[in-house]
């Protein structure tokens, strides 16, 4: 059976599969990794490394995109 880890995404708690990359996490959330920016524990995760960074228990993510604004 898969192990899960506990993380926060945009302020909301969530459990996800252990060992997944940040890119896999984005895809699982239905997001296109090339259209978002990810901050992990207050550090930017460069888009080129989204596939290399593993989601760890206790991680806090902010995932943002561009929206209409003035």
């Amino acid at each position: 059976m898969d192990q899960t880890v506990s993380i926060r995404i945009n302020g909301t708690h969530r459990r996800v599969r252990e060992g997944m990359s940040v890119a896999e996490l984005a895809l699982e959330l239905g997001l296109e990794p090339t259209k978002v920016a990810v901050e992990r524990n207050l550090e930017i995760v460069p888009r080129s490394t989204l596939g290399d960074v593993t989601v760890e228990d206790g991680d806090d993510y902010e995932i943002v995109t561009f929206v209409g604004g003035g």
Partner: peptide
Amino acid sequence: VAVRRVNVSDPGQPLL
């Protein structure tokens, strides 16, 4: 443009 959190509960929304 503004930078805001993606809508994780409804990711299918149209984007700017």
